[in-house]
């Protein structure tokens, strides 16, 4: 058996930069994971539909636009409504600490990684989570 960790990396909202998320994608790939990238400007509905079709273990949401408090809770709600609350939701990007706390405590986000985060930190977070399951 060859179980691989599958990660869906998505960029909902309107910002047009994906350098950061692609660097994370490469780090996850190099750690042996299968990374599926959505491309820019996804709606929460599209993100959730794709995550379900790809049957991923992890949904990584990258946001720079400032719309995180609207988009991220919508994504986690839709995941729950589709019976996919077992997926690990991680958020990356420019998120003020107060917002990060709210997302983690109230909206089903496992962890928010700020702009300075080391990709190794993200890799080991996912690996630890996978092991603990």
């Amino acid at each position: 058996m060859d179980k691989k960790t599958r990660v869906f990396l998505c960029k909902p909202g309107l910002d047009g930069h994906d350098r950061g998320v692609l660097i994370v994608g490469q780090a996850l790939r190099d750690a042996g994971m299968e990374v599926i990238y959505s491309g820019l400007k996804q709606t929460p509905e599209n993100v959730v539909e794709a995550a379900i079709q790809e049957d991923v273990d992890v949904v990584g949401v990258s946001l720079l636009s400032g719309a995180h408090m609207a988009l991220v809770p919508r994504i986690t709600t839709l995941l729950r409504e589709n019976g996919a609350e077992d997926m690990l939701v991680l958020v990356g990007g420019v998120i003020p600490p107060d917002d990060a706390r709210v997302l983690e405590c109230e909206h089903g986000v496992a962890r928010v990684f700020g702009p300075g985060s080391d990709t190794r930190e993200i890799v080991s977070y996912i690996e630890d989570w996978r092991e603990s399951r």
Binding site: Q26, A31, V35, I36, Y37, G39, A50
Partner: peptide
Amino acid sequence: TGGALLGDRV
């Protein structure tokens, strides 16, 4: 590494 970056959905 056994990993892959799958970008066709883009």
